[in-house]
Simulated assay, not measured.
Amino acid sequence: MGAEFFSITPQPAPDPGTRTRRRNGMGPRPRQVHRWMSIVFTLTVVANFAAMTRGPVPAGITYSPLPPLLFLTVTGLYMFARQYGFGRRRPALTPIERLIG
């Protein structure tokens, strides 16, 4: 733990624009869309099983979970890649640029 942890002087408040961004540079939007799409996927799977209890199931209901599953795969891979820095990278700052600010 650094000395700033035990400091009694108040620290400046973070910039409100940076509060919504995560450490990996990704805002809350991709995660929220992924979360809602997982709910849609779950509901289509539940509807699929409910329809199976009534007899033969139409193909539209059988394959209805596939589009949300494809979307979940794409957004999940995107979030995974962004987490490990496979996105746009900023050039590294030189020591002089770090001192200037």
Rank of each mutant, 00 (worst) to 15 (best):
S64A: 13
G2A: 10
P95N: 05
Y84H: 15
A13M: 08
R90Q: 15
F41V: 09
I39E: 11
D15R: 09
P16C: 08
S38G: 14
Q83H: 10
F86V: 09
S38N: 14
Q83S: 05
M52W: 06
S7Y: 00
M52Y: 10
S38E: 09
S7I: 01
M79D: 07
L43G: 12
I100T: 13
A13D: 00
G55T: 03
F5I: 12
P67S: 07
T42E: 08
A50M: 14
T18P: 02
L72H: 01
G27R: 10
P30H: 01
P28S: 06
R22C: 04
N48T: 08
R22E: 05
Y63T: 02
T42H: 10
T20I: 08
W36Y: 12
R54A: 04
P56W: 13
A13R: 09
A50H: 09
P95M: 01
R31L: 15
A81Y: 04
T9A: 14
R21Q: 11
G87H: 02
V46T: 07
R89M: 03
P14V: 10
A81P: 02
M79Q: 10
A51D: 03
F6V: 09
P67T: 04
G101L: 03
P10Y: 00
L66F: 11
P30F: 00
G76Q: 10
P68E: 05
M1V: 06
L77D: 11
E97S: 03
G55R: 02
T18Q: 14
R31A: 12
L43H: 08
G27Y: 08
T53L: 14
D15W: 03
A51G: 04
Y63L: 07
V57R: 03
M79F: 09
R19K: 08
I100F: 07
A59T: 13
F80W: 15
P95E: 02
V57F: 03
H34K: 13
